[in-house]
Design a protein around this nucleic acid. Sequence first.
DNA 1: AGCAAGATCGGT
DNA 2: CCGATCTTGCTG
Length: 171
Amino acid sequence: MKRLDRNFFIRDVLEVAPELLGKILVIKKDGKIERYMITEVEAYRGEEDLACHASKGKTRRNEVMYDIGGKIYVYLIYGMYWMLNFVTGEKDKPQAALIRSIEGFDGPGKLTKHLKIDKSFYGEDLTTSKRIWVEENINKNNFEIMSLPRVGIDYAGEYWKNVPWRFLLKK
DNA sequence: AGCAAGATCGGT
DNA sequence: CCGATCTTGCTG
């Protein structure tokens, strides 16, 4: 039941993203605390990553990615679905881990709908927030991890499209 | 001011 | 495969 602190999130996204697998996402919803194991994550890393929203520089939408690791980046896609991301790394190194699945809810749009995550979570700090944070998993430590190319980024070109930065738990 | 596209999803 | 749905970022 130990909350992950700044030191966890301030590292490179390629270290943080796979380590998020098996950790527990805790959220206060309608006054009740709920816990879900994280089962699938994708890494978006720096302005050079053509699939990353920071590839076109800092904008009002993505500016929180340039903040210190531990913040939340949420944005609306296709006019309907909120995407939940954890900012990682040092300040001014734009990176984030997209939470794609939690136990029971496969799909980034489906999990935010269930958790009632929206624009109001933008910029929230996972290390201090009273309504959302991440905890160690006290039951399990050893997970088998698989990595695959990221989903839905055909526009990013051959190289970035195929980099295996999607991490999921092997069943 | 106008427009094209999007880190998705559910139904044909 | 296709449409829903609307914010964003780019162009002019």
